[in-house]
């Protein structure tokens, strides 16, 4: 069952990568990055159980905690750019 889950996650990662490559908009890409982040977290968790290394769940935890910082940085980047364009 873990194998099936891992394969499904890999396929989802592939689809998210397609969206990141094709775009077309900024938000498509931001969402794709965010989605790949969540899928990586899930993949690490599933593989950790698949191979019986539950200790390595720490890594999935690390991703779960700090993944969105990059997305916040993107939002701040566009906020600053929009403010710079205003006057």
């Amino acid at each position: 069952m873990y194998t099936a889950a891992a394969l499904a996650i890999l396929v989802t990662m592939g689809l998210a990568l397609v969206r990141a490559l094709l775009g077309p908009g900024v938000y498509d890409r931001v969402l794709a990055v965010n989605m790949l982040g969540t899928k990586t977290t899930l993949l690490l968790a599933v593989v950790a159980f698949l191979y019986g290394w539950p200790d390595f769940l720490d890594l999935a935890l690390a991703y779960a905690l700090i993944n969105f910082v990059g997305v916040l940085a993107v939002l701040e980047f566009f906020q600053n750019r929009a403010r710079a364009d205003e006057p």
Binding site: L17, A32, L36, L44
Partner: peptide, 15 residues
């Protein structure tokens, strides 16, 4: 953005 994805995939590979 693609570099961020590259890093995620790399981490999954290392794992």
């Amino acid at each position: 953005m693609l570099a961020a994805i590259f890093s995620l995939l790399m981490a999954a590979n290392f794992f």
